[in-house]
Amino acid sequence: MISFFTHHKSGSSALVSFLGQLSDGSGQPLFLSHLGSTRPPTGDGICCLSNAQYDVVKGHVPGFALHLVRNPLNIVQSAYYSHRHTHGLDGWPQLAAHREMLKSVDKPRGMLMTATFCNSEEFYPETAGPLYAIRNWNYDDPAIKTLRIEDGFDKFTDFLRAALGEASGSLKWPDQANFTFEKLSVGRRAGEIDDGSHYRSGDVDAWKAELPAEVVRYVVSECREVLERFYPESLKWAQDHF
């Protein structure tokens, strides 16, 4: 079993699509779950937990595992637009209620509400939010290798195959040209914004222009250890400007 652990607004939609093609092409079963309460199954195949929680998966990794994280500052700015405009509501009563509140407030207030929602334990059924999950992850667990998803944008095949190394075995990898931002957004280049698209911007530094100071300070306070470890350049920028 090869397991991929990721979180909401961390490239999870593109990753699920990519792993679906990897599974089909390689003749390997794909196990997929959005519930944070789910553990990887035993046996052969590929597993993707798109709202993984460390306390649930620890000690239950039957093979090689990759954990993919995104800059928590960009999670919030991306989630604001997705939660307000584009994300489906089926089976997600928490988001339905949250969307109504987002539509009743201005953008700065809405972004702060988004940050606290993403940091809550009651985010999705049986699932905590992405900020809560990444700040409560044990990054020193030798059974799970953590990577920044930003380092794999537009090159999923090379990125994941290199990370898996010998564990990739005889997998038949998808054409990574099908998973560039331009392809996923149907023609836009990274930085070209469409508020009505699930793939809104593709700019890894969009948070710098989007997030109000209050929101940046909140995320830095809550996720400082993650920023120090994986995004020190973002932490320094935030400290210098706010």
Results as ranks from 00 to 15, higher is better:
S26Q: 06
V56W: 02
L32F: 14
Q77F: 07
T38I: 07
S50Q: 10
H87C: 11
V56A: 06
G45N: 04
P62R: 01
I46P: 01
L66K: 00
Q28M: 14
G20F: 07
R39V: 15
V16G: 06
I46C: 05
L15I: 02
R84H: 11
H60N: 15
G20H: 09
G25D: 09
A65R: 02
G59T: 10
H60Q: 13
I46D: 00
F64N: 07
V16I: 12
Y81Q: 07
L66Q: 00
G91N: 07
N74W: 03
P29C: 01
A65E: 05
K58L: 07
S23W: 03
A65K: 04
H34V: 12
S26Y: 03
F64P: 04
L73A: 01
L32I: 11
S17I: 09
A14R: 04
L15Y: 01
L68S: 06
Q28S: 11
L32P: 04
Y80H: 12
S82F: 12
V61C: 08
Q21D: 15
L35W: 10
V76D: 03
L19P: 00
H85W: 13
A79V: 07
P62E: 04
H60L: 09
S78Q: 06
D55M: 09
G45A: 06
G20Q: 14
F18V: 04
F18H: 05
R84K: 15
D44L: 13
S33I: 05
G91S: 06
H67M: 14
G36S: 02
Y54I: 07
G45Q: 04
N71I: 04
R39N: 14
A79L: 08
R70T: 06
S50E: 08
D55L: 10
A52P: 00
S82D: 10
A65H: 04
I75T: 02
D24A: 15
N51F: 12
F18A: 06
F64A: 12
N51Y: 10
K58M: 09
D44V: 13
N74L: 10
H87N: 10
R39Q: 15
G25A: 09
H83G: 07
P29Y: 01
G36R: 00
S33F: 07
A79I: 08
G59S: 08
H85L: 15
G20C: 09
N74C: 09
G91R: 09
L73T: 00
R84D: 02
D44I: 10
S23F: 05
S37E: 10
W92M: 06
G27H: 09
G27C: 13
L30S: 10
N51T: 11
S12T: 10
N51A: 13
P29F: 02
S23K: 05
L68R: 05
L66C: 01
Y54C: 06
V76R: 01
L73D: 00
Q21N: 12
R84G: 04
S82G: 12
L32N: 12
V57S: 00
G63Q: 02
H83C: 11
L32Y: 15
N71P: 08
T86F: 04
D55A: 13
V76Q: 03
H60F: 14
H34F: 14
L19T: 03
T86D: 07
W92S: 03
D44F: 10
Q28T: 07
D24N: 13
Q21T: 11
T86K: 04
C47N: 11
F31R: 05
G88C: 12
I46R: 01
L73Q: 00
S50V: 14
L35F: 14
S23G: 09
D24Y: 10
Y80M: 06
S82E: 08
